[in-house]
Deep mutational scan, measured.
Amino acid sequence: MALNTPQITPTKKITVRAIGEELPRGDYQRCPQCDMLFSLPEINSHQSAYCPRCQAKIRDGRDWSLTRLAAMAFTMLLLMPFAWGEPLLHIWLLGIRIDANVMQGIWQMTKQGDAITGSMVFFCVIGAPLILVTSIAYLWFGNRLGMNLRPVLLMLERLKEWVMLDIYLVGIGVASIKVQDYAHIQAGVGLFSFVALVILTTVTLSHLNVEELWERFYPQRPATRRDEKLRVCLGCHFTGYPDQRGRCPRCHIPLRLRRRHSLQKCWAALLASIVLLLPANLLPISIIYLNGGRQEDTILSGIMSLASSNIAVAGIVFIASILVPFTKVIVMFTLLLSIHFKCQQGLRTRILLLRMVTWIGRWSMLDLFVISLTMSLINRDQILAFTMGPAAFYFGAAVILTILAVEWLDSRLLWDAHESGNARFDD
């Protein structure tokens, strides 16, 4: 018995066209964080690309023209004298008006014999932002004059995390709450300039795509075929072959399989920071003279006294001054041990922890910024005066060393310790 099946006739004509040209192939790229070699397709503007294995951002879609970056830099340069030299806060102490600005706080630190601690604050609040705007201006002028731009481009990517104007702005709020127990506070004209400078700096850093600047100024022929001998440069993120001198053909720094002496430098910085954190938390970090009496505060006791007036601000200072430094030390110690013992479990967790400490590390400088600003506000000789204690130097040095330890660690070593050939990683 035959089955009668109805015929289905399409209502619209289906047209099949042959592909007349070869589909576009992607360029081969190595991930600078996990060293995976993959094919990167062509990316349009405002599109980002991520590593298929570790999800690290390979290409950032946010990109401004150099002219727009230069305009932002010149605007920031105009704001800087007002943000640093004009009063941020006014207080009335014992019937006398006192003005506080950024430069005055750094000068008070240096004047009291601790120039190293003052230079830490100076670099993060004044030096690094000033280098940022002058570097962008150098790129703008240098591109037109045919100057060598490689050193500036190499420095810009590392400079971003040292620009800490946003953290200093939080420190202004913390210092205001600490001082309000002794005097009446009012915002100064410099505060508005400083807030504007923070906003412009944040926007500029978020749109400063150094890798795209490398592509514009020093374009290189990408690798179009897969080759395990391809290496990625950690300076400019170019994937290719080393030249005859073993250097990256684009930025001219040595092109090595792994960062040289990464573990040794990381261990040295980490152990030194552990040693410095002990006096930083045991010795007094601030000293207040009130009517001839002397009151010393460690980091913890200062947080407890701050909690009596504002528990939320005390929580912020606790996280930045105690929780973050010790968390960074514990995480980095764990990561280094996992590399030495070739741990194969929990790779995803370790990668996330490394990215976390990379982002939060700079916030530990908050305590030094609060001390710097408070020193310029309260300084009335023996009637009422505020000065920093010996722990300030140890704390600042420990924070900087932990930042350097994270920067010096080559994250690809975590993958080397893991089993080879993993296309995915999980716990």
Rank of each mutant, 00 (worst) to 15 (best):
P6G: 12
Q7T: 10
P10G: 05
K13A: 11
I14H: 12
I14Q: 11
G20T: 11
E21F: 12
E21A: 07
L23A: 12
P24T: 08
R25P: 11
R25N: 10
G26E: 14
Y28R: 14
Y28T: 14
R30A: 13
D35V: 02
P41E: 10
E42D: 09
E42P: 10
I43G: 12
I43Q: 09
N44I: 12
S45L: 12
S48W: 15
A49N: 06
R62L: 13
D63T: 15
T67G: 12
A71S: 11
A71C: 10
M72D: 05
F74W: 06
M76V: 05
L79K: 01
M80K: 05
W84K: 11
P87Q: 07
V102H: 02
V102I: 06
Q104S: 15
I106F: 10
W107C: 11
M109K: 02
T110G: 11
K111S: 05
T117Q: 01
S119I: 02
C124W: 01
V125E: 03
G127T: 07
P129E: 06
L130R: 01
I131S: 06
L132K: 03
V133T: 03
V133F: 03
I136N: 02
A137M: 09
F141D: 00
L145F: 11
M147Y: 04
P151C: 03
P151Y: 02
M155K: 01
E157M: 13
K160F: 07
K160D: 09
E161A: 13
W162F: 08
V163M: 11
V163I: 12
V170F: 15
I177F: 11
I177Y: 07
Q180D: 11
I185A: 05
G188I: 11
L191F: 11
S193R: 03
V195E: 03
A196S: 15
S206D: 05
H207W: 15
N209F: 07
E212R: 15
R221M: 12
P222A: 07
L230R: 08
C233I: 00
L234R: 06
L234N: 08
C236L: 00
G240W: 05
D243W: 02
R247W: 13
C251E: 00
H252F: 02
I253F: 01
L255T: 01
R258S: 05
R260E: 05
H261D: 06
A269N: 03
L270P: 03
I274W: 09
V275S: 04
L276E: 05
N281Q: 12
L283T: 05
L283A: 13
S286M: 03
L290T: 04
N291I: 15
N291W: 15
Q295D: 05
T298C: 12
I299C: 12
I299H: 01
G302Q: 00
I303H: 01
N310V: 05
I311S: 08
I316Q: 02
I316S: 12
V317D: 00
V317N: 00
V324D: 02
P325R: 00
V329I: 08
V331H: 09
T334S: 11
L335C: 10
L336I: 10
L337A: 13
H340R: 09
F341T: 11
F341G: 11
L347F: 11
T349Q: 13
T349G: 13
I351W: 15
T358R: 10
T358Y: 09
G361Q: 01
D367I: 00
F369N: 03
F369Y: 14
S372N: 13
T374L: 04
L377P: 01
I378W: 00
R380M: 03
L384V: 07
F386W: 03
A392W: 05
F395Y: 12
V399K: 00
T402G: 02
T402C: 08
T402M: 02
S411N: 11
S411E: 11
W415P: 05
D416C: 07
H418Q: 08
E419C: 15
E419A: 11
S420D: 13
G421I: 12
N422I: 13
